[in-house]
Amino acid sequence: MRVRLVGIYGAALVIGTWVAAPLLLIALAAFTPRNILYEWPRPLWPRAFSLDTMLFFLRSTGVWASTLNSVVVAGLTIGLAFLIAAPTGYALARYRFRGKGAVQLSILVVKMFPATVLSIPLAVAFIRWGLYDTLIGVAIVHTALSIPFVTVIVTSVFVGISYELEEAAMTLGSNRLRAFLRVTLPMAVPGLAAAAIFTFVLSWNEVFAATILTLDHRTLPALIVDSVISAGAPLHFRFAGGFFMVMPAVVIIFLIRRYLLTLWGVTVR
């Protein structure tokens, strides 16, 4: 019993460290004054903090524009993904239909294609269609990437809401649509919101497609990868960029962590 407890806590510690240590190191480095950052031997805990590096990063060209781009892309992704995945999830949760299993499987099959393989054909196709270097183009790819997640989440959200409630509303005189809007949707909102935020984080963090498919209209990760890392920006500048990138995701996940549990079947009523 004791051994088991030690094992569990040990594993939790290792995993926690594995996730948290890089975040902590990036955060520390982002707020360390430049001269201290390049000292050798470097202290684990810096002697002084400063906002200089962060401010320098935030004032550099294109950061705010690409942040806005990222937000727009994420917003479009959420809209598009829900437009497609929400009805799919509802249908999968509520109805038995021919090919249901195939639909469920094909949703996962999308995840089997590495984005790397698709990148060049995708870039070529997007140039032909005039979608290259547009935000909607990036959003479309992000939608494709997030649809499996959103579908699975939405399905489990709707499965968690008893269909009898909708049926009860129908026997009380509402039609199918009204029953959905008045009864199921209000109950699904927390779960759907969590799914939307999850999609936001997914799109916000996506770097590969964003880098390949944009040139002038960079999203934030693409900008950081391209102009900060590839262009050989100094170390402290990278840390600032990394910190700025990762923070929204960390904060959001922290805020919705309760809902994340409910997303996969463990529903709270």
Binding site: S162, E164, L165, E167, A168, A169, V183, P186, M187, R269
Partner: peptide, 12 residues
Amino acid sequence: AMVFQSYAVFPH
């Protein structure tokens, strides 16, 4: 009008 086995009372 119908009374369901699970009551189907709207929780919200």
